[in-house]
Computed example of a mutant assay.
Amino acid sequence: MYRVRNKKRGVSMHEIFKVFFINLVCDIDNMLILGIILRKHSHLKITLPAAIVLTLTRTTYIILIDGLSNIPLFQLLTGIILLFIAYKVVTRSTWEDDFFRPSRSPFLKVKVLLLLAATDFLLCLDGVIVISRISQHVVPVATGIFCSLLISLLFFTLIIRLAKTFFWINFIAGGFIAQNAIIGISKDPWLADWIHFIDHLFPRVNIVNIIANGVVILIIMIGLFAYIKEHRITIWK
């Protein structure tokens, strides 16, 4: 009995570490988006509540992901929204400081947490799918996600500062988001016949990868153009 318990504990710790590591890596670019929301409402001090809420929502997504992924148009719509987010990431002026007036609304914390959860739903799908293939056990999944989220949220200011100092970090993050969006769109059941038909026409060419890489280049070029244009205006001012 003792050996069995130790074995189960070892498997559980292994799952927790895997979930922790994958979630931490996937959140590097996600924190650029979530960090904007948190930075805007930094006076609320909701790091711990945000980690708890996002842990609960992500764990729920992992349990339901197989069913959600099979809904026609679901991945297509989320992919389109992700493309819009990628565009906003690369065109946002991260080198300019934003100033916000703290609100005293008693329901603001709830509103911000709901906004974080809704935004995170779109951003975390790639990580959720990977984690769901590793473990479907609630305790290891929730523990790994919570620990990685807590670290990411505690150090999100560092990520934002790096993005402000090194503008190309936004381009990389936007490129990753755009690539995941195209790959996700290609997996939508509604497009399955079209993808199969294209693969049949061009059996030696991976059309999805070509389109994804093309969109990544386009997003980076848009971001670079926006940066040069804005930077030139800033210099002349």
Results as ranks from 00 to 15, higher is better:
58 R>W: 07
123 L>Q: 08
139 V>L: 12
77 L>H: 11
69 S>Q: 07
134 I>T: 05
43 H>R: 09
82 L>P: 00
50 A>N: 01
125 L>Q: 12
95 W>K: 09
50 A>E: 02
48 L>D: 10
84 F>E: 13
50 A>Y: 00
34 L>V: 07
104 R>S: 12
94 T>S: 14
54 L>E: 05
81 I>Y: 05
34 L>Y: 06
64 L>M: 12
104 R>I: 09
36 I>A: 14
142 A>F: 03
34 L>S: 08
97 D>P: 13
76 L>A: 06
135 S>P: 10
33 I>F: 14
77 L>Y: 11
54 L>S: 04
63 I>D: 06
108 L>I: 13
88 K>D: 09
128 V>C: 08
119 T>Q: 15
73 L>H: 12
99 F>I: 15
46 I>F: 13
100 F>Q: 04
51 A>G: 08
115 L>A: 09
73 L>T: 10
118 A>H: 11
33 I>M: 14
92 R>A: 15
93 S>E: 11
28 I>V: 13
59 T>V: 04
92 R>S: 15
72 P>W: 02
76 L>H: 01
32 L>T: 02
110 V>Y: 06
32 L>R: 03
123 L>A: 08
49 P>R: 00
117 A>C: 07
42 S>F: 10
133 R>V: 00
61 Y>N: 11
107 F>A: 12
107 F>R: 14
88 K>I: 02
87 Y>R: 02
125 L>M: 14
117 A>H: 06
81 I>T: 04
81 I>M: 04
67 G>Y: 10
69 S>P: 04
48 L>Y: 12
41 H>R: 08
118 A>Q: 13
136 Q>V: 08
54 L>F: 03
97 D>N: 15
131 I>G: 00
125 L>V: 10
104 R>G: 13
47 T>N: 08
133 R>I: 00
60 T>M: 10
118 A>S: 15
55 T>I: 10
82 L>D: 01
48 L>Q: 09
124 C>H: 07
66 D>H: 12
66 D>P: 06
91 T>P: 06
146 F>Y: 10
129 I>A: 03
91 T>E: 06
57 T>C: 07
85 I>A: 05
56 L>R: 03
123 L>P: 05
42 S>N: 11
34 L>N: 08
127 G>S: 09
74 F>C: 03
100 F>N: 07
87 Y>W: 06
84 F>I: 14
134 I>G: 02
36 I>W: 15
137 H>T: 13
72 P>Q: 03
144 G>C: 03
120 D>N: 09
59 T>E: 02
43 H>C: 05
43 H>Q: 11
125 L>F: 09
105 S>I: 07
71 I>C: 01
42 S>H: 12
141 V>M: 09
46 I>D: 09
70 N>S: 14
29 D>N: 07
